[in-house]
Design a protein around this nucleic acid. Structure first.
Lengths: 339, 339
DNA sequence: TTGTATGCGTTATCAT
DNA sequence: ATGATAACGCATACAA
């Protein structure tokens, strides 16, 4: 690891000059000749700034915390399937900016005051909250806000305009999906809610609203629910759907997770997607790609969300808290595949 | 954040004394009175050492990398389900020792030389390799070894005694499981291999060996395979097992992931576990707890493995590479539950 | 038993 | 346009 000092000796200039150049702060303060020489030298020796020295002098830690909600009794197994992807993406974005991360499970059953204290005591430069549906998030964000510690909420929404978050627009997505199926000429559509409790109102609203507007039908009887994630529950749900609306050939799935089982169930009813049945899912693409045929679905655009959130977070850190909060709701992003 | 200097002023001693005490290096060098006073003061003000300053002076980064194998075309979705747990545990252990982490996806399809260079260039103090089954791990470990960068392999085995790893003893586990079922009086046992390719030989060996020794039967015809993870594949596997050995009531599952589907399949055959059928699984406990009834299984003991690996890694970092490598193979750990 | 001094790599403030 | 130099917080060799 070559240091800025060695670099300065090689270039025959001072460390200050090198620092200016390498941080892009040489706006008409360093001659183009020396600037180019320094850059070339740095590239040649593969110079990489020592983040610890930088952190020390800047009074930061160059560490971020990724906070995931959980509790002791009930693991967030459902959302867990692709948490790994999210963590990897966040870590990559952090790494690119010189940050390392810490992953912290926050037990939401504990008193909020304690949680706030612990989060602050972590001594990180910023927080990424991942998939928080629990209302305690508001208290945590407020606490961090008063401590002037930047934080973003990834895949979640809070009302207060002071906070930064990004999410996808669930209602818009299910609206778009329903419209798509109608546009394809389907008279009947079944909404298979295989993940009740997760954005259930938004999903149903998008579905029923469009059917009411476009077709003037009350689609509430076209919604079928699996109370749990088990195979038998899902099979039962499909059975009920087929029993209630025998000639339905279009299905909207509230989470890709159940796709494999749903496809199997449809086959048992003599329907072979995509030939005999049309299915659209919603959720993680990696999961949509697991079933055969691959599931057409609306993606969560995690990569775009991570980009947005990390950019907002790092900006806030850099500007010392007087950066304005950002919010973004990602619209429908449809991926056509086998079904 | 109170510093060592402020602490020293409060205690009326020098920073050196405080440093010695707080790092436990005051072996008969500081009077008990001042030592206690310093400790009390530190606790009172919640002193936490600035890791960046420490890192700077020690010439370390206080960052670890967690390297996960993957490639662009095929995501490690199967193992991914509980990667999140592992990452969280590792991060917690790292945090306790003052380390932050970076998560890096290593594309195993790329040239090993490139990968090695990139890993070294990360500039971390150590590596945790998570669930590597690809032989390229040997090259990576060798490269890091020559660069004197500590590394451990979690849930994996390499032959070379120079490397540090921990894993569970798959053969021993399936031996134990088979013995357990025999001990319970089961004449016939079906091995349902729902995850071919992952430790397949070890699993089969443990199974057939015990049945050969104890019962003198050739159990190779008692092994049934699902070529993929899909629901229909697994249902088909169970169907074949039931067709081939109609009165079998004991089932050994090569991965908990399929438990839900297997239970469903057995119910279709009129078998209600645990009343009519006995099932033992293998794998992550969080997954075993998802099905109903909960799956009895052999656990991976990830927490113990993380403890072991992280302790080994941190020791190696602290001792500057002349710490001896450690290996450990965790034996069977049975968890009795609903099935 | 305790204190002083030095240096780690960087940024930023002043001179020059 | 560039160079000295002072911090930042800590660990440690050395002095007292």
């Amino acid at each position: 690891m070559i240091t800025i000092r060695e670099l300065s000796q090689l270039a025959g200039v001072s460390t200050a000059t090198v620092s200016l150049v390498l941080n892009g702060k040489d706006e008409g303060r360093v001659s183009p000749a020396t600037r180019d020489a320094i850059r070339e030298l740095a590239a040649k020796h593969g110079y990489r700034a020592n983040q610890n020295a930088r952190a020390l002098v800047e009074g930061r830690t160059y560490r971020l915390a990724i906070a995931v909600a959980g509790n002791l009794t009930q693991h967030a197994i459902l959302g867990q399937f692709s948490l790994y992807d999210r963590l990897t993406m966040i870590s990559a974005a952090a790494h690119a900016a010189g940050y390392a991360i810490e992953i912290v499970q926050v037990d939401i059953d504990r008193p909020a005051v304690e949680l706030c204290r612990e989060l602050v005591a972590m001594g990180v430069d910023g927080f990424v909250f991942l998939e928080w549906r629990d209302p305690v998030i508001n208290k945590l964000l407020l606490s961090l806000h008063t401590h002037r510690i930047p934080a973003v909420l990834l895949e979640g929404i809070v009302d207060d305009p002071d906070y930064t978050w990004s999410d996808h627009d669930v209602t818009a997505i299910f609206r778009d999906a329903t419209q798509r199926l109608i546009g394809e000429g389907h008279d009947k559509i079944a909404l298979l809610d295989c993940m009740p409790g997760v954005h259930t109102p938004e999903k149903r609203e998008g579905f029923t609203d469009v059917l009411k507007q476009v077709r003037d039908v009350d689609a509430s009887s076209w919604i079928f629910t699996a109370t749990g994630p088990s195979v038998s529950e899902i099979l039962d749900m499909v059975d009920r759907a087929m029993a209630a609306m025998g000639d339905v050939r279009a299905f909207l799935l509230t989470d890709n997770l159940a796709a494999d089982v749903v496809i199997h169930a449809l086959k048992q009813h003599g329907l072979e997607p995509p030939r005999d049945a049309r299915i659209i899912g919603y959720g993680d693409t990696v999961i949509a790609n697991r079933c055969s045929p691959k599931l057409s679905h609306y993606a969560l655009q995690i990569d775009a969300q991570v980009d947005f959130a990390m950019d907002a977070l790092l900006t806030q850190i850099q500007q010392g808290g007087d950066a304005s909060p950002r919010q973004h709701r990602f619209g429908p992003h449809y991926i056509e595949q086998g079904t």
